[in-house]
Design a protein around this nucleic acid. Structure first.
Lengths: 238, 238
DNA sequence: TCCATGAGGTGTACGCCGTACACCTGAGGG
DNA sequence: CCCTCAGGTGTACGGCGTACACCTCATGGA
């Protein structure tokens, strides 16, 4: 039995093993359960052992972020910047759906990791290759903001909540408590008007994917229009 | 001297006084310095005294958020939904610039406060009054996302950083460390191409206000176009 | 006038967190 | 054969949110 325990934790610790365990823990139990102590316990090791492989918790988070960013599909070259960018952002979104804690983690760091910089750099590259001026590409990157990493940017977001408190529990359909609905009639109205293409299923929650693509296409279409007009910041509209 | 101390803290505690002190502390020292202990010390009181007026730290944050939301200008009625919405969002942005900790605080709560719900409700009302279908208004609210509260949604944001670590220190101009610039040529290019209308000041950081309005107008223009086209989710483009 | 009441401030204590620092241990090289 | 040192351990510190028992003192009914 002692030997069993020994065999179980025979696999030596390594930065990589720590990062994978940390990502798994955050996926399953939520980012708020990711403490150095919990993580060490999952790895069958004493908390301080982790510090031989990661400098501190912030660096651990950076490493986890890089793991996530590494899962995003690379840009597939193509003639059309719009499809390239759209496709990759949707891939990023899929990755974030697997790691709902990631947006919060990324936002809470105050400098980009090299992996994120590389991702952003390649996105700018796609715009430039599509004929965008550096000027326009710059503003476009700002306008996309965190959406370019697949963030949904919802104010109150079931996925975010999952990233905090553990596995996703499906939102109760169109969940506005009765008293609330009465005080905020416009919200109640659009909550029940969550139609989408399936009109029969009325009053269900929102189709996150639809909302995401709606917003993404709104931006991309607007960007395409500016690009076609030869927009520059010096002679800007209005 | 005992009397002096007594006179100083003669003002009795109250929920309102606590909230104002908390907002002030977060503004000055950053949200990470806002602990019940620090706040109590600022108020000349023992930590547990706060709990007679707020249930716990989460409720304190909710209260602080409501203070911030309360500072946003109300909707000024007008014929044009676009100007109404635009104006109010820019007001929200100004408020957030005074309280850089607020976005993080809002995102970290997992349900909207009544004040935020009221704000969102009135925004929906503006769209509806402008002739939007409930359907379109719904998707538009999702597409605006946190931008509707004035969030800039930058991935790595000087204001965010300030909200974390205290008072804003102006960003060093176009701050890309030399090694980084070499590895990410496209980022380097658009960083130096931060032109704006003042071409003489080259390589300065970004004009946050410009970037925010650029993104906001991109969205609003796209929304206006959909509205004019009588967009509905049942017969959606593509 | 007196005393019960209860709102509101206090003190202590618990379990969590990140992590500094001294220590031990065992495999690999001279 | 022993030295070294990478890597795992144990203890401890200061910070956090907050449960819980306590004290204090203004207030209002008898």
């Amino acid at each position: 039995m002692v030997e069993q325990a020994d065999t179980l934790r025979r696999t030596p610790l390594s930065r990589d093993r720590i990062l994978r365990a940390a990502v798994a823990l955050a996926n399953e139990a939520g980012i708020e359960s990711l403490s150095m102590r919990n993580l060490a316990q999952d790895l069958g090791v004493v908390p301080m052992a982790l510090y031989k492989h990661v400098a501190n918790k912030d660096e651990l988070l950076d490493g986890m972020i890089d793991v996530v960013v590494g899962e995003i599909d690379p840009l597939v070259p193509g003639a059309d910047w719009k499809h390239m960018v759209r496709r990759r952002i949707l891939s990023a979104r899929q990755v974030l759906r697997r790691h709902p804690w990631a947006p919060l983690a990324i936002e809470s760091r105050n400098m980009a990791t090299p992996a994120i910089l590389a991702y952003l750099d390649s996105m700018v590259g796609a715009f430039r290759a599509g004929g965008f001026s550096a000027d326009l590409a710059h503003h476009v990157m700002h306008a996309m903001g965190s959406r370019i990493l697949g963030f949904s940017q919802e104010l109150f977001d079931a996925a975010r909540r999952a990233g905090r408190s553990g596995t996703t529990v499906p939102d109760s359909p169109a969940a506005l408590p009765p008293g609330v609905a009465a005080r905020f009639p416009h919200l109640a109205e659009i909550a029940t008007a969550a139609s989408h293409d399936d009109e029969s299923v009325v009053g269900q929650g929102c189709d996150d994917q639809f909302e995401f693509e709606f917003a993404l296409d709104l931006l991309l279409d607007g960007i395409e229009r500016l690009h076609q007009q030869g927009w520059t910041s010096s002679r800007r509209p209005r």
